[in-house]
Design a protein around this nucleic acid. Structure first.
Length: 882
DNA sequence: ACCGCCGGGTGCC
DNA sequence: ACCGCCGGGTGCC
């Protein structure tokens, strides 16, 4: 059936992706430079009417920015452009003749448009409002755009003085009016944030949650509850005499803007986010618990006269608290749509009442398959039996809405959701969820337009994004995040572009500040470094290893060769076209740094045939390694079927897919679904099936010498053993073969070792971890582990030493490795040793990591102009000192 | 909606 | 009259 076929699904959504995908994400499309806000500039504006306003409820007054959104599926006109106000309520449409000219240019990514209504009140027309549409384009396209617009009879007004962006225009206007400057406003918001930043601990309902929470978890719970129930204004809104203004768009309204019920929960891994979230959900079972808990947390919420009778009645009945707290109003407001009628006048006992009447408070949890079981385990571990009813949803479409709403939690995966997205019958599209939680949201890749869209279109009152590695490398980009959270006006692309993205790209401080305020308001992130859970300190030591003479000679020779190859690519401008070859060469250099045994024994040159493509194609071992490196410990799903890939294919542009998926896709369109570069079957390289354990063991026996890296490791391990023979260590490497090579020298040195790698099934892994925990002299002291095999949530706290045999491209992956050991339950001081080969590519990888970390810090979650997971041209120069 | 546009009714001076 | 002109109905995309 077509609905079941992920490839058909992917292709069917391709159009949507074409017009919505962020051009910034096309980091590899170097040969046809993508449009990005940094490269666009204001050509001028056209005046067009917003028509049909009598049909829509969206209001607009005075001078105000509006959102312009393409509506290609409009049945009356495929060129339709709808106009939204700051609350994302539709105001009208751009009049047809203008839309007919602009829509094709917008769809082709030739222009970006932003709308501003100069003065809505002055016209006083009930049917239309004039609007300035500011047109941005790349400089190369500007003449073509100008003639296209003028040729169609539209007047493109380009005042040479109008060289600032729309958002800057707003600032100028603000200042002219003598209002607060935007900077002052930010300051105010900042103070507000820090005031609210003081976290109040909150106890979970003990009749649902049986575990005692750590203080930081109680504080996290307090924050979650506060974010769901507070009525404070969202950032960038101000109240003036009972009316409200958005200071960024200048939108005025008498209707109080809806608070943002939810946000980003981005605590470090290992701080117990799952338990905290379960505690949040537990409150849904019992309204009074929340009421009294929140009362004691003394949340500062404005008073209201329209008190919910049902709440005060409930409280009176139970006699827990008679005071009409701020809760009452919020409760009513949250629930009024669906619960008002039901709740009034019932006299059941409180908890039961909540359960039956608020029984439809169902939380949808969307997570990757890898953490599906974590939720189940945590439920068993931390909640009383049968208190929270969980339904595991695998896409069974026979389930109707009513059935699912009987549960407290519906647990599903991103892929299930994405697959169901196209099915209009799916209950997932009909249910109004009480709350939606996206777990490990960073794993949603941007290419997965269908995933982003499926979660964004979910109907829910509260929306949460949960991640332990917040947007470090920007997969689920910030705009998608705003869209999912329905954070108006940032959830409208043109607003996002003009208010944040463009200022940011232009290096305008306002973009950054806005972003910071935004994130500070809606997100919570605590790191373990702050001593939240009294975790013993962690020391990270970087040990620089000198290569032996033999290693050094070979390395220098290879590096020289690599440089000359890269220079050829760069000069020819086809570096990105041969990306997989580039990675394979980098891989070889990295292997030499660790152990020559990782390379073929007859290694004389990187390029035995002077033909890199042939080399890659004919060297399955190299390819396999390449695939491993590309996966780099990250949970990797085929972006087409969104599942762990089978028969991995690597493209010339170094993207990975299932063989079947990419072949089907190519059949429809000869382009890479990820970077959209041209792609044919001859650009696909397959990796051989994973070799079994026994295949590799033979290799190690032929090995006689110990590499510099391994010697250094041995020295550390023996030193540690001399200090305390009971100390356990974990050695991480991303090369599975290396873990096998390590076995012999470690055994020879008298260590009792265990190995944990990707070839083991779940049962065997659990066994290994359990065995590793055995204390004393009988127990093993060294665990050789691949990160991939040590899935999230795995606990290696039996160890207190971590050795990272080589640097990872992505520093977040290293953090993840350390977190296996440095997490709740760790009693010892933790020492982490990173082994880095001196004067080698490894040193420069570390350099690159620092730069990436800096980028991530600049705006928590602020992604750079590119997806930083990929190695760019500049990165390559750094790596090779070129 | 104080417009434009459409289409039916109508038709010398 | 295969026109012009009149005036009512009507109205985003």
């Amino acid at each position: 059936m077509e609905d079941e076929d992920p490839v058909s699904l992917f292709l069917s959504l391709d159009n949507w992706q074409e017009s919505h995908a962020d051009p910034d994400e096309l980091s590899l499309a170097q040969d046809s430079p993508p449009q990005s806000p940094a490269e666009t500039y204001l050509l001028g504006f056209v005046i067009a009417n917003i028509v049909g306003i009598q049909y829509y409820s969206g209001t607009i007054s005075g001078r105000e920015m509006v959102g312009l959104v393409r509506e290609p599926l409009n049945p009356h006109d495929s060129n339709a452009i709808k106009v939204l106000n700051t609350r994302t309520v539709q105001v009208g449409h751009i009049e047809r003749p203008v839309a007919a000219v602009l829509a094709p240019l917008i769809d082709a990514h030739t222009i970006l448009v932003e709308g501003i209504v100069p003065n809505a009140r002055a016209t006083g027309n009930r049917y239309k409002i004039p609007c300035q549409i500011h047109v941005f384009s790349r400089i190369e396209a500007s003449e073509a755009v100008k003639s296209a617009i003028s040729g169609a009879g539209l007047d493109l007004i380009s005042d040479s003085d109008v060289s600032f962006t729309l958002s800057e225009a707003m600032v100028v206007k603000e200042q002219r009016k003598g209002d607060k400057s935007v900077d002052e406003i930010f300051k105010l918001v900042d103070e507000n944030v820090s005031k609210k930043g003081a976290l109040e601990p909150l106890e979970p309902p003990k009749d649902v949650i049986k575990s005692e929470l750590f203080v930081h978890q109680k504080e996290g719970l307090g924050w979650l509850v506060h974010r769901e129930n507070s009525d404070e204004l969202p950032p960038f809104w101000e109240e003036k005499d009972g009316s409200y203004v958005n200071v960024l768009t200048n939108y005025h309204t008498d209707v109080r803007p809806e608070p943002l019920r939810g946000g980003v929960f981005a605590d470090d891994m290992g701080l117990g986010k799952t338990l905290t979230l379960l505690s949040l959900i537990a409150f849904d079972k019992c309204g009074s618990a929340l009421a009294s808990a929140m009362h004691s947390a003394s949340l500062d919420v404005e008073k209201s006269d329209e008190m919910g009778e049902e709440e005060s009645g409930k409280k009176g009945k139970k006699g827990r608290t008679s005071k009409k707290g701020p809760l009452s109003r919020k409760k009513r407001k949250i629930g009024d749509v669906r619960f008002d009628g039901n709740v009034k006048g019932k006299s059941l006992s409180l908890c039961e009442k909540s359960f039956s009447d608020f029984g439809s408070k169902t939380t949808l949890i969307v997570c990757p398959p890898s953490v599906f079981s974590t939720w189940i385990t945590q439920l068993e571990e931390h909640t009383w039996p049968r208190k929270l009813k969980v339904y595991m949803y695998y896409g069974n479409r026979t389930n109707d809405v009513g059935e699912l709403k009987k549960y407290d939690i519906v647990l599903t995966t991103y892929s299930t959701l994405a697959t169901e997205y196209r099915c209009s019958e799916s209950p997932m599209k009909k249910i109004e969820w009480w709350r939606v939680i996206l777990d490990e949201a960073h794993l949603i890749k941007n290419v997965n337009a269908q995933q982003s869209r499926a979660v964004t279109d979910l109907i829910a009152q509260r929306r949460w994004v949960v991640t332990g590695t917040p947007i470090q490398n920007g997969s689920f980009d910030l705009f998608s995040l705003m869209a999912f959270l329905r954070f108006a006006p940032f959830s409208v692309k043109s607003h996002w572009q003009s208010l944040v993205q463009r200022p940011l790209a232009l290096g305008n401080q306002k973009g950054l500040s806005r972003l910071q305020v935004l994130m500070a308001t809606i997100s919570l992130r605590r790191t373990k470094e702050k001593g939240l859970i009294g975790l013993p300190p962690k020391v990270i030591e970087t040990c620089y290893v000198e290569l032996s003479r033999e290693e050094r000679e070979l390395y220098d020779k290879m590096e020289g060769e690599a440089k000359s190859v890269f220079r050829c690519y760069i000069d020819a401008g086809n570096m990105m076209r041969n990306y997989s070859a580039v990675l394979s060469i980098l891989l070889r250099l990295r292997q030499i740094c660790i152990d020559l045994a990782l390379c073929p024994s007859d290694l004389k040159s990187l390029l035995p045939s002077h033909n890199i493509e042939a080399d890659v194609t004919n060297n399955p071992e190299l390819l396999k390694k390449m695939v491993e490196v590309l996966r780099d410990g990250e949970d990797f799903d085929c972006p087409i079927c969104i599942s762990p890939p089978t028969n991995i294919i690597i493209t010339r542009c170094a993207h990975l897919f299932c063989q079947a998926c990419i072949l089907k896709t190519l059949h429809h369109k000869p382009r890479c679904p990820l970077c959209r570069g041209p792609l044919t079957q001859s650009d696909l390289f397959s990796a051989p099936p994973e070799a079994s354990d026994t295949d590799d063991t033979g290799v190690s026996s032929s090995k006689t010498t110990t590499s510099s890296k391994v010697s250094a490791l041995l020295k550390f391990l023996m030193e540690s053993r001399n200090q305390n023979p009971a100390t356990k260590s974990v050695v991480f490497s991303q090369f599975r073969k290396m873990l096998i090579f390590l076995e012999k020298p470690l055994k020879d040195a008298g260590f009792k070792i265990l190995r944990l790698d990707g070839s083991m099934n779940a049962k065997r892994r659990t066994q290994v971890i359990e065995e590793f925990g055995v204390p004393g002299h009988d127990g093993p002291t060294v665990l050789l582990a691949s990160l991939k095999a040590s899935g999230t949530g795995i606990n290696l706290t039996a160890a207190s030493r971590v050795y990272l045999l080589e640097p990872w491209w992505n520093p977040a992956v290293e953090d993840q490795a350390m977190d296996r050991v440095h997490r709740i339950g760790q009693k010892e001081n933790v020492k982490i040793v990173r082994l880095i080969a001196r004067n080698s590519i490894e040193e420069r990888i570390v350099e690159l990591q620092e730069r990436k970390k800096q980028l991530a810090r600049e705006a928590f979650g602020g992604r750079g102009p590119k997806d930083r997971r990929e190695i760019g041209l500049d990165d390559l120069r750094t790596l090779m000192s070129m």
